[in-house]
């Protein structure tokens, strides 16, 4: 079971500022997801190789060829803040 401390830890790692109410809601939702996983865990997987994919594909690759990029202005268009050609983000050196 996931407790409040776990939720706070994950929230901190993902830089999410959750209110007390949200922390509690997340705790409940995460636990219900884990309960669902327990149901899945009940399936007999004897002799089945673990996989991260539902499709039976390997080695999907591309040749090393340069393709057009998106124009600089388009890439910067959605930036909340910019400084010339650069994205501007809040200071990340912490005291």
């Amino acid at each position: 079971m996931i407790d409040r401390k776990d939720v706070e830890h994950v929230a901190r790692l993902t830089r999410l500022a959750l209110t007390e109410e949200e922390l509690e809601r997340m705790r409940e939702q995460l636990n219900s997801i884990l309960t669902h996983l327990d149901t899945l865990r009940g399936v007999d997987t004897e002799g089945v190789e673990p996989t991260a994919h539902a499709v039976d594909l390997v080695n999907v690759m591309r040749e090393d060829e340069v393709e057009p990029c998106l124009p600089q202005d388009s890439m910067l268009a959605n930036a909340p803040d910019r400084s010339g050609e650069l994205f501007r983000v809040p200071r990340i050196i912490e005291e």
Partner: peptide, 18 residues
Amino acid sequence: KLVHEGTLETAQASLVDF
């Protein structure tokens, strides 16, 4: 690549080049 705006001590923002 991140560069700090101004000096490390006084930086108010960081700038990013992707």
